[in-house]
């Protein structure tokens, strides 16, 4: 299962890719696989604030509805509007076109405390 090395992860299966003082957030390949076909993604409004570990949105699949947890705190500066019409992008391309929000980080250094790709892989069940 693909786990890119250019970003950080949480045990809740979100990824965060820092770009200077900003960061893009999405969910992992493992997460989309466990959820099944994604039918709806509810994202925060631009300008709202997210805090590390708190829910910032919801993702609904044919099986269930799960909360999305923010890996780091900050202000939402962009959301992936394409997901409104094409939630399946989360399944097709979780690390790229299926991204969810872009935030301005409160504390860019805090990103370093998140899991790297190797550490995240150890949290997944063997064989995934």
């Amino acid at each position: 299962m693909e786990i890119p090395g250019d970003r950080r992860y949480t045990t809740e299966h979100e990824w965060l890719r820092a770009e200077g003082a900003e960061a893009v957030i999405g969910i992992t390949e493992y997460a989309q696989d466990e959820l099944g076909d994604v039918v709806f993604v509810q994202l925060p409004s631009i300008g709202s604030r997210v805090s590390a570990g708190a829910a910032f949105g919801e993702i609904e699949s044919v099986k269930t509805v799960s909360e999305l947890f923010a890996p780091a705190g900050g202000e939402v500066i962009a959301v992936n509007e394409v997901l409104t019409e094409h939630p399946e992008l989360v399944n097709d391309s979780p690390y790229d076109t299926g991204w969810m929000v872009r935030i301005r980080l409160d504390d860019p250094a805090a990103v370093n405390s998140l899991l790297d790709a190797g550490a995240y892989r150890t949290t997944l069940p063997p064989g995934s």
């Binding site: 039918v39 609904e60 699949s61 044919v62 099986k63 269930t64 509805v65 909360e67």
Partner: peptide, 11 residues
């Protein structure tokens, strides 16, 4: 259906 209480419980 996913928003109903038998899947989503207390939420």
């Amino acid at each position: 259906q996913a928003r109903e209480q038998f899947i989503r419980r207390e939420r």
